[in-house]
Simulated assay, not measured.
Amino acid sequence: MITFVWAEDQKHQIGIDGHLPWKLPADLHHFKKITYGHPIIMGRKTFVSLPHLLPGRKHIVLTTSLTLKNKYRDNKQVSIINSVKELQDWINKNRQQNLCVIGGNSVFNALKNQVDCLEKTEIMASFKADVAMTKINYDDFTLVKKESHQPDSFNHYYYDFLTYLRKEK
């Protein structure tokens, strides 16, 4: 199963300067809960934006960077994949697992017709950003879970955790 995991603001913005435009600790906790124990698929920019390798997850990185390939050559927690075709081959071999796609936009776009589950955090605010989420046809999905949350002393915005599953064809 392929699951997209992301957060977006009311304008569908997901990033600025290679980082999240907001601080929302509850979303980071939710992200960890969803992705822990599963491979996480991402592009180079998303990978380098991480503060460190995320424990309990294999990092699958789509990039042509020889620097990253050499740096992580012997690291069993990181696999560098050089092309969308090579990524597709890897996905086909590992489909029995829940594969979590965490960004960026080009990776979401490459896999949007194959995604089975959407795990979206919707933040009820607008932020300055330079990257918007890939357009997803929500008519192909059914909302199966919604958790609404109020602002608190750590999370300063209203936000919803939304889970969608692809409709049967």
Rank of each mutant, 00 (worst) to 15 (best):
I2A: 04
I2D: 08
F4P: 00
F4M: 03
F4R: 00
W6F: 15
E8D: 05
E8W: 06
Q13L: 00
G15C: 05
G15Y: 05
D17W: 06
H19S: 15
H19G: 12
W22N: 04
P25K: 13
A26D: 11
A26L: 10
L28M: 14
K33S: 15
I34N: 05
I34Y: 13
T35D: 06
I41G: 11
I41T: 11
M42S: 02
M42L: 06
G43F: 14
F47N: 05
S49A: 14
L53Q: 12
P55C: 08
V61K: 03
L62Y: 15
S65C: 09
L66P: 11
T67P: 02
Y72A: 15
Y72D: 10
R73C: 12
R73Q: 14
R73F: 13
D74K: 13
K76S: 06
V78F: 11
S79C: 09
S79Q: 07
S83V: 14
V84T: 09
K85I: 08
L87H: 11
Q88H: 12
D89C: 10
I91D: 03
N94E: 06
N98S: 13
I102M: 02
I102C: 07
G103V: 03
G103F: 03
G103A: 04
L111D: 01
K112H: 06
V115W: 00
C117H: 01
E119T: 03
T121N: 01
E122H: 04
E122I: 01
I123G: 01
M124L: 13
S126P: 02
S126K: 07
A129W: 04
A132R: 02
I136W: 00
D139Y: 09
D139G: 02
D140C: 10
F141G: 03
K146Q: 12
H149D: 09
H149R: 02
P151M: 10
S153C: 14
N155Y: 07
N155T: 15
Y158H: 14
Y159W: 14
D160T: 03
L165Y: 06
L165H: 13
K167F: 06
K169N: 13
